[in-house]
């Protein structure tokens, strides 16, 4: 489904990714782990088409497309979804308005009829129920005044409604309390399908207690330094990133108390 070959990316002339190779097949769940600054989020953003990231070498094929040649909206219409690490606020625009515009855009791109208001509401409400979320979510302005956890859950709601072929979750688990973490995991597990794939970008192992990955890759210094199965994540939990990337420190096991800083893990805590 997704084939990344020798991907080099720089921002403002600074090299961030220095040769990523990754193969994601339909039906698989991949976890990309790594310490801060290893390039995890850059990889997620490049796949979604964020401007300002310069691909200096390599290629990305997605379902037969040259993914890097597509505009962000074309990627979305081709089934790529990025759950943002820091979801944006769109004041005055109700969640339901964005969801409907987005879904109908994707349906048009797939040659399907747009959903009318009633059918759309039925679809969305079934997803809300699936995620155990309240209807009131729909009528609040997109992410405006949402708590960190609500924003992340809102990303998962969007994902559930849009049903992407390739879902990329960029540190969606950071800063979540255990309930929100379960919602996220539930959303991802419900999406699993032989025709779909998921890439979980995460700093911590704890999300992988709820979503069992088929493959785990450790990113350090802009490249994948180790790949393995789910056991690799557990090994990382034991040994820390220092084990694979001696220059960096940081814990792998998440703090499940819900008050974890989003940006950086606290050093010296485990």
């Amino acid at each position: 489904m997704l084939h990344i070959e020798n991907l080099h990316v720089s921002i403002d002339g600074k090299s961030i990714l220095t040769g990523i190779d990754l193969d994601v097949k339909a039906g698989e769940v991949h976890a990309i782990m790594g310490p801060n600054g290893s390039g995890k989020s850059t990889l997620a953003q490049v796949l979604a088409g964020r401007e300002g990231y310069v691909v200096t070498a390599g290629s990305v094929r997605y379902l037969g497309h040259d993914l890097l040649a597509l505009e962000p909206e074309q990627r979305a219409r081709a089934g790529v979804f990025l759950a943002f690490q820091y979801p944006l606020e769109i004041p005055g625009v109700a969640n339901v308005q964005l969801l409907r515009a987005a879904l109908n855009n994707l349906r048009r791109a797939r040659g399907e009829n747009e959903l009318d208001a009633m059918d759309f509401l039925d679809t969305v409400k079934s997803k809300l129920a699936l995620l155990g979320m309240d209807d009131s979510f729909l009528y609040r302005a997109v992410n405006e005044g949402f708590s960190g956890g609500e924003k992340k859950r809102n990303e998962i709601l969007q994902m559930a409604v849009l049903e992407p072929r390739l879902a990329i979750l960029d540190e969606t688990d950071s800063g979540l309390d255990i309930d929100a973490l379960k919602t996220v995991a539930h959303g991802v597990n419900a999406l699993k399908h032989p025709e779909r794939a998921v890439i979980l970008v995460t700093h911590y192992q704890r999300l992988l207690n709820y979503i069992v990955p088929d493959h785990v890759h450790v990113l350090a210094g802009g490249r994948i330094v180790r790949s393995g199965d789910a056991r690799l994540a557990l090994e990382l939990e034991d040994k820390g990133y220092g084990w694979l990337a001696p220059d960096v420190q940081g814990n792998v096991q998440g703090d499940v108390q819900g008050d974890v800083p989003m940006e950086a893990p606290r050093e010296g805590r485990l």
Binding site: G49, E73, F84, A101
Partner: peptide, 10 residues
Amino acid sequence: FYLRSRGLSE
């Protein structure tokens, strides 16, 4: 970018 990544044109 956020909205475009949801499939909306610019």
